[in-house]
Amino acid sequence: MPSLIKALNSQVGRKFMTGITGIGLMLFLIGHLAGNLTIFGESQAFNVYTHTLESLGPLLYVIEAGLVFFFLYHAILGISIWRQKKKARPEGYDTYQTKGGPSHQSLASRSMIISGTVLLVFLVFHIMHFKYGLFSPDEGTVILESAGGVEARDLRALVIAEFQNPLIAFGYIAVMALAILHLAHGAWSAFTSLGMKHGETSKKVQLGAYIFAIVLMLGFIFIPLYIFLTGGEGSLIAY
């Protein structure tokens, strides 16, 4: 039997791990969205949420490291699969088209590497943007009553301010739209990589994947869109 490392590096193992990391990242996104939506909660809810995260201390580093690992592992696998494809077919077809029917070839499945790469670039920017507050004036601080009166970064104000910039708001929206594509194939594909058989269940999972991708990403899209359209003063945002 091959060692675990060798096995995970085989063609089956690689896909198995893209699936596992993909599912991990999707779970993370669900949590992330739930957190983000607190922006529409009671006035300091969002800051309490971000502050709580930040005050996890070493635990946060562990979680973050885990996330980064998942992300990078997933990205490396994705890129290596794509590179192997170039090696496996050095000379392409003059004409190529899908036969349809049971095929899962679609804009979504064929653009995984593009949507994935955009997500990777976006992520670096996103972390620098909101986590480290680069590219924007220093955010102020707030006193969080509900968290025992501690002083925290006013990330809520930052988010609301930044999303009034059309470039940033629509940039985010565009990336999220691409993420729909990534997940529309990904959320089905991951289960197939883990050994789900093709058949009725698989059809349902594919439908579920579309719905999941759209709902999740509309959730993410809703925030910048709402803030931009209402100038940050819509009734959903409590002050």
Binding site: T98, G101, H104, Q105
Partner: peptide, 17 residues
């Protein structure tokens, strides 16, 4: 299969079609 230089499976399912 890997040694022969085939690509990985991305679950396109075009093969089944």
């Amino acid at each position: 299969m890997e040694e022969e230089g085939f690509g990985d499976c991305s679950n396109f399912a075009e093969c089944e079609a």
